[in-house]
Structure formats: structure tokens, C-alpha cells
């Protein structure tokens, strides 16, 4: 009861940018609310019934007035819109050198998987002053990854990868909430984001030698599931080369003349729905792995392919 918070922590590089827009809007809102309330109160008192004041020449139309209170708010609105859009683009554009962490949402917990192999439930450890990019998906319904202190939020949608990035500026512990209603225990699908100093983070992330790095697990899956027999890159191989080949971020040309950049979504799609895009020069013979690989296995394969 002693707490009466009126403002959240500012703990990321975008927090103050969002707050600046917030305070501008608060100022505009307060100004217009008070102006209208004052005008109404003044008129209601001055022109109350029985008060003998000058009521001659009442206005019924005044195009100049109408246009000015249409155009001035419009200009203000466009200013806020543009400013806000610029900050939004920043929020939605992860830097290329960001530390990557995979996140899987499921009813009702958050599972974070670091490429080093370290994994956490309802917790996320990240380094301070370093851009961190989360690659997120859901195993069941739509969830939403929300860290109020960082002013970031992104839906986590089954069947696709969504991205969220931030750069924490203050070591500490912050709330992590699921913000999209996801069923019975929605309100306990919460956790803690712990921002560590660089050295502490290095210690934490490399602390347990028993962790199997994601890429290693992915390589194992790549062999076990037989991917390697076609995607081995040898002359005459049935599938396009993947093993020992850098394909992530490259452009793939397809039989139907279209092309795509190889990203997480493309890799996922190619495993689960391989007939959708046939790489030029290859036969459409790959079977679907839909239902055979967990979301986690898919992320391991993606990490393996990324690190080739």
C-alpha cells in the first residue's frame, strides 16, 4: 500500500524517447482539456439564464474559426505522428550486431534459449549497454513479450518469428509480462529481466560448461534427421547445400523465378512446408517435417544454419 507509482523505470535506450512523446502528449492533453473546461465554465456562468449580458450578434458560422481549429490541431497531430513514427522505426529496427536470444512462449511460461546453450524459464539475463535481439515464437496461442521499463512490447505469434530488440542502460531487475491474453494463467505468465554488468554477464553466460551450444545441438539434429544426406553440398546432391555453407542472409532464387533472403522465417518454412519454395535447379522431393520437430528443435536448426 505504501507504493503509489506514477511513472515506470527508464532502463533502455528508447525509454526516454518514448517518454518525451508521452510528456508532450500529456502537455497537449492537459492544455486542451483545461482550455475547453475553462471556456465551458466561463460561458456557462457568464451566459447563464437571467444574467443580463450582451447577447447581440451571436455567431452561427465562422469559416475562419472553423478552419483554424481544424488546421491547427491537424498540424499538431501530424507533428506528433511523424515524431512518433521515427521513434517507432528505431524500436522496430534491431542493430545488426545485437546479441541474439531465442524465446518460446507457451501457456503459461517464457522459455529463453541463449545460443551458448544456456536456457531459462521466466527469466532473461542480458548484458547492460549491449543491443539484445529476441527471436520469438509461440508453441500454442498468441502471447506478448512486454518489458515496461524498456518501453518495448511485441506479440509472440505461433507459426512465425517476431523480433524485439532493446539496449538496457541500467543494471537491475525488471518486470517481464505477457501482455496478450492467453488463457487461465495469463496473469502469472510473468518473469524477471535481469540486466547484468558486462563482466557479470560473461561470467553468467559461460558459467556452466555442461551447456550444449544451440548450434551443436542443431548440427546433431541435422544429422539425426537425415538432412545432411541431401544438403551436404557435394556435387549431384539432391538438395541445395547447407552444411559448411554460408546461406543465412544470402538470396535464394526459386524455380518460379521469385527469390527470398534466407532468414529465420524462410528456414522454418522450408523445413515445415518445403514445397512452398523450390530452389532453382532442384527437384521438389523434400518431405515435410511438420509435427516432427519441436519449436525448440527448429530454433536449434536455425542457429546451426546461421553459424555455418
Amino acid at each position: 500500500m505504501q507504493d503509489f507509482p506514477i511513472f515506470p523505470d527508464q532502463a533502455s535506450t528508447v525509454a526516454w524517447q518514448v517518454d518525451a512523446i508521452y510528456f508532450t502528449l500529456v502537455a497537449l492533453s492537459v492544455f486542451f482539456s483545461i482550455a475547453i473546461a475553462a471556456a465551458i465554465t466561463f460561458f456557462a456562468i457568464r451566459y447563464r439564464k437571467g444574467n443580463n449580458v450582451d447577447r447581440s450578434n451571436p455567431m452561427e458560422e465562422n469559416t475562419v474559426l472553423e478552419l483554424s481549429w481544424s488546421i491547427i490541431p491537424f498540424i499538431l497531430a501530424m507533428g506528433v505522428f511523424g515524431w512518433s513514427a521515427v521513434v517507432f522505426i528505431t524500436i522496430r529496427t534491431p542493430p545488426v550486431d545485437a546479441v541474439e536470444v531465442y524465446v518460446i512462449g507457451k501457456q503459461w511460461m517464457w522459455h529463453a534459449q541463449h545460443p551458448s546453450g544456456k536456457s531459462e524459464i521466466n527469466e532473461l539475463h542480458v548484458p547492460v549497454d549491449t543491443p539484445v535481439k529476441l527471436i520469438m515464437t509461440s508453441q500454442d496461442v498468441i502471447h506478448d513479450f512486454f518489458i515496461p521499463a524498456f518501453r518495448v512490447k511485441q506479440d509472440v505469434v505461433p507459426g512465425r518469428y517476431s523480433m524485439l530488440w532493446f539496449e538496457a542502460t541500467k543494471p537491475g531487475e525488471y518486470h517481464l509480462f505477457c501482455a496478450e491474453y492467453c488463457g487461465t494463467e495469463h496473469s502469472v505468465m510473468v518473469g524477471t529481466v535481469t540486466v547484468l554488468e558486462q563482466a557479470e554477464y560473461e561470467n553468467w553466460i559461460g558459467g556452466d560448461a555442461a551447456d550444449e551450444p544451440l548450434a551443436v545441438a542443431g548440427e546433431r539434429l541435422f544429422t539425426e534427421n537425415g538432412c545432411i544426406s541431401c544438403h551436404n553440398g557435394e556435387p549431384g546432391a539432391i538438395g541445395p547445400p547447407i552444411a559448411n555453407e554460408t546461406i543465412f542472409g544470402e538470396t535464394r532464387e526459386f524455380e518460379d523465378g521469385t527469390s527470398l533472403t534466407v532468414d529465420e522465417a524462410y528456414i522454418r518454412d522450408s523445413i515445415l512446408n518445403p514445397q512452398a519454395h523450390i530452389v532453382a535447379g532442384y527437384a521438389p522431393v523434400m518431405p515435410s517435417f511438420d509435427g516432427q520437430l519441436s519449436e525448440q528443435s527448429l530454433l536449434q536448426l536455425i542457429e546451426y544454419i546461421k553459424t555455418q
Binding site: V14, Q17, V18, I21, Y22, L25, L28, S29, A77, V80, F81, S84, A85, V87, F88, I91, D144, F146, P148, R151, V152, K153, A179, E180, Y181
Partner: peptide, 14 residues
């Protein structure tokens, strides 16, 4: 307006 503005909506959405 706070919700129509993209950057603030990201924070206050839901």
C-alpha cells in the same frame, strides 16, 4: 492520441 502514436502505443498497448 497516445494510442494512435506508434512509439507510445508500443508501451501502452494492452
Amino acid at each position: 492520441l497516445f494510442l494512435g502514436a506508434l512509439a507510445t502505443d508500443v508501451h501502452v498497448h494492452d
